[in-house]
Amino acid sequence: MPVPQQPDLTALPSSSSAQRAAAVLVGSGTSGATVDDGQVLRRRLPLSFWISAVFLAIIVLAAVTADWLPFVDPVEDYDPQALAAGPSGEHLFGTTSNGNDVLSIVVQGARTSLIVGLFAVALGFFFGGLLGLVAGYFRGWFDTVISAVIDILLAFPALVLALAIVSFKGPSLTVVTITLGILAIPAVARVARAATLQYASREFVLAARTLGASHKRVIFREVLPNVVIPMAAVSLVAVAVVMVAESGLAFLGAGVPADTPSWGSLMKLGQGQLDKGAAHICLFPAAALFITVYSLNTIGDTLRQRFDVGRGVL
């Protein structure tokens, strides 16, 4: 009987198709590779990124090397000849109303801010990432509970919660860091969960399961490498937010102890001098905070866009 005509897709001789295909593919090996690995990173980064990176590098470097730099001690040393004096050759950023050197306090304050910012976000990155991954991968009741807790924590006024914890536990660098770290957990967890949801439904996850990979292996070897990029981007922004929060707490007198130099407490000190011709006491720590936060946000955005391109290529 007549057979329906149709494109005979396997009419080509199949015996040597692998070799034939190999020849085709080897020939097109270079053109088939559309994006070279290094190319993504080598592509020019915007000027704003480099300016931000330089600012950030200066602040980090100053904070790290503060002890070896020829700064006067921000607490012990004071200059009775220059109380609330403006910037001068001797005191580049001027002095406080107590005669302390503002530059010293700003540099030592950078150290406080960075320690709190980095450790708090590391805390949030680890626990938030873990919770988000597990919730997004397994779904079900665990996801429902975690998502509800995340929403509640994000809806709660963070600074009020931080104030409450710090006033209850007493101000110390550790308490401030852990408190802000706990507040960073839901922010990171939400991003990690959203990204996990996106990747856990991809077929490579299913393929790994059918190959016999354990859930643990799939989560950490297949899903995590994809989720860690948006997590890192949000974490850079989170460092900025935590630094602002740390300064805010110090400004309210509920941050790190009074003898620990901090941008927030310096701003509080300078607040009373703002209208008395000594605005520099407030302005220098504020500028340091502004530049740091702006740089972190810019770098975070640039990195996220850069890696989004990589995903777009897919």
């Binding site: 991809r202 077929e203 490579f204 790994a208 297949e222 490498p225 994809n226 995903r311």
Partner: peptide, 8 residues
């Protein structure tokens, strides 16, 4: 494309 992990 979805069958292969883009990061490996």
């Amino acid at each position: 494309i979805s069958s292969l992990n883009p990061r490996r």
